[in-house]
Amino acid sequence: MYEGVVQNLIDELGRLPGVGPKSAQRIAFHLLAADPADVSRLTEALKEVKDKVRFCRTCGNVAEAEECRVCRDARRDPHVICVVEEPKDVVAIEKTREFRGRYHVLGGAISPIEGVGPEDLRIKELMTRLADGTITELILATDPNLEGEATATYLARLVKPMGITVTRLASGLPVGGDLEYADEVTLGRAFEGRRLLDV
């Protein structure tokens, strides 16, 4: 145990995801030794993120205004929505520069063990967006784990009757990898999702 203030800092850092007690201690001592200007930039950033960042009223992504950058961008395809679990998934997909539609962030996935049901996710908001008929395709990009799959199934069952095309991201072999290093589940999925080769 350290002097009160230092220990407080270590405890607070230790509550962050992915930071164990050892890392928390390391970060704390790094901050103690750091230039005061650097530390105040960090505290400023922390304060700002809580004060300024809001969630987009349309898609639920992080935003600095009423709406996020993607929803404000008129060049984006208004007919396609990609559904993801978290704002960080939006960033991941944006990096591909492949997708030109808009997003919908659910804020998690259905998981009864953690007490998360459909009513705890931004599904009502999604249904409102789908109601006016401009959307023709819904891409389900929830995580490829059990909870993500269950959430995708739930949404597909809800949306299909509305006559909107529902697609799911493919899962399978990583690009540039060797077949022999793929685990059985991934390889099995890749077999299930195999497609005709156009030549």
Binding site: I110, P112, G117, P118, E119, A150, T153, Y154, R157, L158
Partner: peptide, 8 residues
């Protein structure tokens, strides 16, 4: 809603 989730 509960029944729909259960069906999933």
């Amino acid at each position: 809603e509960m029944l729909a989730t259960l069906e999933v």
